[in-house]
Each structure stands twice: as structure tokens, then as C-alpha cells.
């Protein structure tokens, strides 16, 4: 076992892990941050996306020891300090961008990365950016719409409900 230390959601976090412990497992099992989900084992589904040093990564495809010293942000830190939803989260609720909620943490983390790099993405840019995030419920319609709305674009004419 190795002791690993990192900053998670702004607070110091540490724990004893095996070499093979994934960052996703460390977050879920050691820190009880169960908002980061594991939906596949081949790095496709993106339910586990977190931010490591400001970049979106798949926490199920990164060893916990590789995050030593890193600044990690998970879905649990994405709301405002008073618990209210931030713009992206609110857009997902307003536009029904989630159903079962399982892929949602990864979607929010990816959407936030996208809008940081590209504040006004086109529909095609949003769709391609989500290549690593699979949703089985929504058919993506309302996810794409929510992300575009969160970027301040008028989505009322995009497609009929």
C-alpha cells in the first residue's frame, strides 16, 4: 500500500492505496465521493470524468498514485457554495438534459471543460466534444441543447420539443 495525497474539491485528501487502485475507486471508496460513476471498463462511457489540474480526465483510466499532488475536482464541487445549481447544472435541469442521472456527473464535468475552452460552441462542436460521454436515456437532444443554452445561446429555435 502507498499513501497518496492530493487536493480534492479544494480540500486535502489522502489515503492508503494499492498500485492498482484507480482514481475513480479512490474517490468513491476512500473518500466516499460516489458522484463519480463507473459505467464501463474500456474508457468509453465517461461517467467517471473528473478534472485533474483543470483538465477533464477519465478517473477510471488513471491510477490514484498518478494523481499524487494533483488538484482534483469532482461533481460534488460543481454547485455553488450555498448548494444552488451553477449555470451548466441549471441548464441541464431547465432543458431536461438528464433522465436516470447516471451519466450526468460525467456530462457536467465534460460540458464544463468544453465551455472553458470554447465559450460558444456550435451544435457540431458540442456533439463531437461528447464523443467520450455515453448517455443511454436522452438521445442527447436535451444534453446538447442544455450545453448550448448554458453557453448563453438561444436554443428556443433549435428543434421542437
Amino acid at each position: 500500500m502507498t499513501e497518496v495525497k492530493m487536493t480534492v474539491n479544494g480540500k486535502p485528501a489522502s489515503g492508503a492505496v494499492e498500485g492498482r487502485t484507480l482514481l475513480a475507486s479512490f474517490l468513491r471508496d476512500n473518500l466516499s465521493l460516489t458522484g463519480t460513476h463507473i459505467g464501463c471498463d474500456t474508457s468509453q462511457c465517461g461517467a467517471c470524468v473528473v478534472h485533474v489540474n483543470g483538465e477533464a480526465v477519465k478517473a477510471c483510466t488513471m491510477l490514484a498514485v498518478e494523481a499524487e499532488g494533483a488538484d482534483v475536482k469532482t461533481i460534488e464541487s460543481m454547485a455553488n457554495p450555498d448548494g444552488s445549481l451553477t449555470v451548466i447544472q441549471q441548464a441541464f435541469q431547465d432543458h431536461h438534459g438528464l433522465q436516470c442521472g447516471f451519466c450526468t456527473p460525467g456530462m457536467i464535468m465534460s460540458a464544463s471543460s468544453l465551455l472553458k475552452d470554447n465559450p460558444k460552441p456550435t451544435e457540431a462542436e458540442v456533439r463531437h466534444y461528447l464523443d467520450g460521454n455515453i448517455c443511454r436515456c436522452t438521445g442527447y437532444h436535451n444534453i446538447v441543447k442544455a450545453i448550448m443554452a448554458a453557453s448563453g445561446q438561444d436554443v428556443s429555435a433549435l428543434a421542437a420539443e
Binding site: R127, I134, G139, Y140, V144, K145
Partner: peptide, 16 residues
């Protein structure tokens, strides 16, 4: 696995 079973992605689909 998802390496061979194709799950539709956002870029495979239009607005409906």
C-alpha cells in the same frame, strides 16, 4: 465490450 458494441454517441444523432 464497448470496443465492439456500438453505443450511439451525440455525434451520431441529430436533433429530433
Amino acid at each position: 465490450s464497448y470496443m465492439d458494441y456500438a453505443m450511439p454517441r451525440a455525434s451520431d444523432l441529430p436533433f429530433y
